[in-house]
Amino acid sequence: MAVSTSLENAIGMSGAVLFVLLASNIIISVIRKWTPNSVRIPVFIVIIATFVTIVELFMKGYFPPLARSLGIYVPLIVVNCIILGRAEAFASKNSIMDSIADAFGIGLGFTLAIVIISFFRELLGSGGIDMFGFIKFSIPGFSDNPISILIMPTGAFLVIGLLLALFRHLGVMKNE
């Protein structure tokens, strides 16, 4: 969530999460029959940590600017509740193909959420979208004086709170 200041960061982060989720779901699903029940959580954590390390090294090697702007949030994927949650709730009980499908579903849901949030934050917070130089536009007359509070950390809380309320109002999401 902290990385949702721009679309670039959001997509980089989602890619990393999707990879870790997919890879760890596959491995955990493969070894589920040989993992003793009592030590399964430490085993899952070590597997997830391994893939996070791979992602971190890969990002540092090939996308240094992205790695710099994501900072400590890349290693922190390891304690992302989604990944351990899916490993425990789904991959440790289901077949490999089902686990891959589950990883894609959950990963894409995460991507969608973080992309929507970062889209609003970047568009209104810096006055335009600039994605790796491919897509570039700004709102005329607005980009000189954007709502800069939105790219500050506290802006993320604001955008998420308002989006949640909006989705509930529209009936996309259920009330508690």
């Binding site: 509070i149 802006g155 809380f157 709170g161 308002l162 949640l164 309320a165 509930r168 109002h169 009330n175």
Partner: peptide, 19 residues
């Protein structure tokens, strides 16, 4: 207001604390 109950209002409070 109903759509704000629970998490949305908590996020908005966090916004104001952050500010």
């Amino acid at each position: 207001p109903k759509p704000f109950k629970g998490f949305p209002i908590a996020f908005l409070i966090a916004t104001m604390l952050g500010l």
